[in-house]
């Protein structure tokens, strides 16, 4: 190849990359899913499991890359500044997209995104150690009121969902000022402290029940859990809105300004991928609760969550 043809072909490549993507041709090159956490974490594995099915539904290639730091905000901040081509999507969780931008000075906000679809959502629950005499949320409240300052609740870090769940419970019950918060660096050390009895309360999704001996006290959902029908919902025990429902959800986001037809195509492919047999069995294996919303429904849900989580952030003092 001589220099002229090389330059010519580079120029063609350059223009093809810069030209606005047309939906019928999309995708012309591999689509990149950005995971805002390190490789090997729960989110990473979910997205890596999802990528092949999305690729199949799109009829193109999909690859996953990781950019970690700042509880996911580094990746979101980087993607918010990218050209909205639809070739780079982020998988953001509830904390990355709705909580972090309200507690930290990050270069993105509610209007930085074109939500594509939600993939997973699980309600959170409040847990205590099994065998410590506390069996119900009423007993927990009574114990805390009897001995203010004695009990500790843990979290995987300030501002994490594990933190906000417990804040929602005890703020809703009016005893938040009588219990102390002990943050850890990640769930692992917090669970170890739970097993050792250093902390007495921890909030997480249902999956935690399989990781240790815990008693579930309350679920932050609009309905009781199928697997734990005896656990009351937050509303039932008198926790008022907006603290009564908390979901750990995640979905695909594109930078704001992505062409509508590309968003529609991605959203549709995402739906097909979530519904695919392969991904359904993957979700069953990893005990992921799937919850697909298309672009329009997800946009409305995302905005409602963004506003709704403000109250709980204030309660947590963040």
């Amino acid at each position: 190849m001589n220099i002229k043809t090389l330059i010519a072909s580079l120029a063609v490549l350059a223009t093809s990359a810069a030209a606005p993507a047309l939906a019928q041709d999309f995708p012309e090159r591999p689509v990149n899913l950005v995971v805002p956490f390190n490789a090997g974490g729960g989110t990473d594995l979910l997205v890596r499991g999802f990528a092949p099915y999305l690729a199949e539904a799109l009829g193109g290639d999909v690859f996953v890359s990781n950019m970690a730091g700042g509880s996911g905000t580094v990746a979101a901040g980087a993607l918010a500044g990218q050209r909205p081509t639809g070739y780079q999507l982020g998988y953001w969780s509830v904390t990355v997209s709705t909580i972090q931008p309200q507690i930290k000075d990050v270069p993105y906000g509610i209007d930085s995104w074109e939500p594509i679809c939600s993939v997973a959502a699980s309600p959170t629950m409040l847990f205590t150690n099994a065998g410590n005499g506390i069996e119900t949320i009423e007993q927990a409240k009574a114990a805390i009121e009897a001995e203010p300052g004695k009990y500790l609740f843990g979290s995987s870090g300030p501002g994490a969902m594990t933190h906000l769940t417990t804040v929602a419970a005890f703020e809703g019950l009016g005893v938040l000022d009588k219990i102390k918060h002990l943050p850890f660096q990640g769930s692992g050390p917090a669970l170890q402290a739970m097993a050792a009895g250093t902390i007495q309360f921890f909030g997480d999704t249902e999956i935690l029940m399989q990781r240790g001996d815990f008693t579930p006290l309350v679920i932050f959902s609009d309905a009781r859990s199928e697997n734990f029908p005896d656990v009351p919902t937050a509303t039932e025990v008198g926790i008022a809105a907006p603290l009564n429902e908390l979901y750990l959800w995640g979905g695909l986001f594109a930078p704001a300004g992505t062409p509508d037809d590309v968003v529609a195509k991605l959203s549709e492919a995402c739906g097909a991928a979530v519904a695919s047999e392969g991904f359904q069995s993957f979700a069953a294996d990893t005990q992921t609760v799937l919850n697909y919303r298309d672009a329009e429904a997800f946009d409305a849900f995302f905005r409602a969550q963004y506003e709704g989580n403000t109250a709980i952030i204030e309660a947590a003092g963040l």
Partner: peptide, 30 residues
């Protein structure tokens, strides 16, 4: 601690536990 309690000791053992999850094994105390 990774295998006996399902609690990862560092970033690498956390990756291993996550891989177990993928293969239908729930890491945890059991």
């Amino acid at each position: 601690p990774t295998m006996a309690l399902g609690i990862p000791g560092d970033a690498i053992t956390a990756v291993m536990l996550a891989t177990l999850t993928l293969h239908g094994v729930t890491p945890g105390i059991r």
